[in-house]
Every structure is written in structure tokens, then in C-alpha cells.
Design a protein around this nucleic acid. Sequence first.
DNA 1: CAGTGGTCTAGACCACTAT
DNA 2: TAGTGGTCTAGACCACTGT
Lengths: 247, 247
Amino acid sequence: MNDIHAIELKQAGRPFYLQIKDTIENQLASGVWKPGDQLPTETELRRQFGVSEGTVRQAVIALVKEGRLTRRSGKGTFVARPRFDQSFMRFFRFRGGDATRDPEFGLAVIDIKVGGVDDPGITRTLGLRKGAKVLSIHRTITQDETVVCHYVSHLSLSDFSGLSARDLEGTALYDVLERKYAVHVVRAVETLQARAAGAEDASILKVRSGEPVIAIERIAYTYGDRVVELRRTVGRSDKFWYQIQLT
Amino acid sequence: MNDIHAIELKQAGRPFYLQIKDTIENQLASGVWKPGDQLPTETELRRQFGVSEGTVRQAVIALVKEGRLTRRSGKGTFVARPRFDQSFMRFFRFRGGDATRDPEFGLAVIDIKVGGVDDPGITRTLGLRKGAKVLSIHRTITQDETVVCHYVSHLSLSDFSGLSARDLEGTALYDVLERKYAVHVVRAVETLQARAAGAEDASILKVRSGEPVIAIERIAYTYGDRVVELRRTVGRSDKFWYQIQLT
DNA sequence: CAGTGGTCTAGACCACTAT
DNA sequence: TAGTGGTCTAGACCACTGT
């Protein structure tokens, strides 16, 4: 866990605290330190790097501000758990229903397929060769029994063989990946468009074919910018919207 | 500009650096220090607050990380210019055209109207009484001569009387508000939906009526969470998309 | 109690900017 | 050259968490 011993990095010109930050970031990216792990104490780090405590602190605090570490007074410094779905939900808002009570959401698996996909965009994004086996999970989100969106998650089968519908029951996909495969989603990019509902969208979302729907493509990454998931979501535009804070 | 003299805030329990940060934030929020202004130097601030330089620095650096201040070595600390359109553009991507050259963008004013608006949502959002005069600016963005979106900005007339089409020629609205009225947009919320193009959308964007388009509502705020602008944008879904980094 | 992070001080030397 | 922020040191005292 604490494998830094007597590191002597004195890259010409580069401040110590940045070199220390780099070193810690590398440990995180390579998975040597995993979410929840405790880091060496400041005193220990100071000793290992041979700098003053304030310098180590500068590196650690920068990483805390970036959300990679957390510190708890009296306990220690820990690798932060990327609470990813929270940040996702920051942007989503579901609409509709009466405001008198909180709506009830549900997750359901429609099916799980394994096999070659006809869309070359999927294998390319996942970094697989053409025709490679892909795991495709098709799910819906319901709000008070109304389906508001459906989505398909594509994952590289070789990384996640043995994933079953039971694993996904009532749990977020990323929690399963974390618990069962020790893969942590740390970053994602979402691209959003308006589109006309196709036949499949129409039947699942119970809208007329050709109605405007929101289409979202998400690419989720783990450490080292490796792609974990390509997710395509289609949602009823009358039932949810996307909200962004610009600052 | 530097109106803090010999502040002695020792709120029980609250760390000095946070109290200093609060004080600076208040100066920024109240507009005493405006974008581009230089702050007192660290030595001066240390003297005024009666603390050590490291403590002042802790407050200032926190504000730099939040984007409220900038520091330039050898020059000083300055109030950051909220470069707002940049952060907006972080999310937008225009699509299409040949990739061999950079596309050319254009801004055009369709018209500027003054008067009561029939939509009560507009006056309510702007914090005006029903029937109050509203300034409505209708513009388009073109990419290589193709109109990709059009939008209407609604502003409270009493705050921005005298704004003319000439002011807006080739300039971003927020730059004009900053230069002519000393109003700085510091924050905005955008809400995004898919919608069917109406008759006006169709004629401006040159799409068929009923085609899916992206509709964005933006509420822009200045200091103290006061609403400056309500902007409604409608864009061709085949010509631009919205991209978000989740972290 | 010993160990952790949280805050704070009072210096030091450096690189950069302007005059 | 004088003034700015950028980095770094070597201490100090505190509040919090576990035993």
C-alpha cells in the first residue's frame, strides 16, 4: 500500500509539491492505492520525500480539492471513492407527476446480450477489434410506472465475463463493476442530441414514432483514460430534462 | 478599491483564513472590487488583517482555485474576469461542414423589441411585475452561412435602457453589458430539452416544421443571484450538440 | 493517551515584472 | 532595483479520533 520509499525526485525546475502530486497521482492511476485505502500519514510522506511537512501538504490538499483524496481529522488521508452517479444526477431532472409527493423511480433490465455488434462505432470506442465479443445491457428507468428513458450499456466482454442480470438487480452498474471487478469509473463524457423516436424507442417509451426524444451518448472511463462503457440513452423529452450550471 | 483597513475579525472558532476569504468574497459580491481590479498585495493584506502571510495566502489561493481571482507572479492579484462565454462553449460543439478547414461562425441580430411580453414566465423569471417593459433581443448564430440556432434574450428594460442593435454588432451580449452597464454575468443555469420545431423555428433554421430541435433555456445571474437575462435558444439537432464532462 | 489532520507563524530564497 | 507572487522550511498549538 505504501510503496514509496525514500523517493528522491528533484526534476530541475519543477516544484517539489508538484512532483509529489504527480507521484501520488501515478499511484492512484495505476491502482496501487485503491478507493478507501489509507495513505501514509503526512509525517511519513514528509520523511519519504525528504521535504518539509508544508510541502507534502500542498500536494495532498491539491488532490483533495480535485476530489481524488479525502482527509479526516484525527484519522488520516484516504483515497476518495468516485461517487459517480451523484455527479451524473446533478444534471438530470425528471419532470412530471404531481408535486405533492416524491416520484418513485425504478430500474429494470430488459435483456443482456453477448456477441458481435453490427455497429463498428461501438467496438472502436471500446478499443476492441472488429467482431470482438461485446456485452450489451439494455435497461429502463421508470418514474411512477412510466418509462422515461431506456439505455444500452456496451462493455468489453473479456473484461466483465460472468456479469448476470441478477448482479444488476436494483443496483447501479458502476457499483457492480466496482465490487465484482474492482473497476472504478472516474470520468465520463456525455454528448446530447435531439432526435426523432425510432420504432424501438416508440414501443419502449410509449411515444409516437417520429416524436422528438433526447439521445445521449456516454463514454465512461476508468484510471488511465481506459474506456469502460459506451452507453446510449434515449429519453422522453416530455419526462426529463438536462440541467447544467455554468460557472 | 482597497477599503479594508485594520479589520479585526476573530469570530470564535472560525479559522482566520476563512474569515478573510469571506471578507474578500463580500467585496467581490458587492462590487467594491470589480473584474480586472488589482487587490492589495499580500504584504498589505497581511498588515490589514493582522495575520501572517501564509494565512492570507490560504484565503487568496482558495479564491483563485474557485476562479474568482487570478494571480500573476511579479504583478499582483486581480479580480478574475468571468469569461463566461468560454465556459458556455465548453459544452457546445458544432457539427458538420468539411473537417478540412475551421468553420466560420457569424452572429446576427434579427431584431430588438421593447414592450410588454405575453409570456408571464419571462417577467416572473426576471423578477418584474406583470406587464413591465422587457427588452427582447433576437439573434442567430451561423456556421458557414447556415443558421444553426436562433435565440431570444430577455432583459429588464429598466436596467439596460439605451441598448441598441449597433452595440451588439459583432460583440457578445455579455461584453456589452459589462462595458456599457458594468453588469457582470457570473453564473448561469441551462435547461435543455428536445422539441418539435414550430413554424418560426422552421423558417429561421430552414428545417421542416415538426423536426426535432434542441431547446435550451438559460437564466444568467450577476452578483447576489440577481437575474440578468432569460435566454431561449432553439438549435438544429443535426448541426450542433451538447457535450458534458462528468467528474 | 498517542497519533492524526487543521491552523498559524516568521522567517528564507527564488523568478518574474516593471521602471 | 524594488516589488510582486511562488516555493519551502521548521517549528508551534489546536481539535478530533481511537485506545
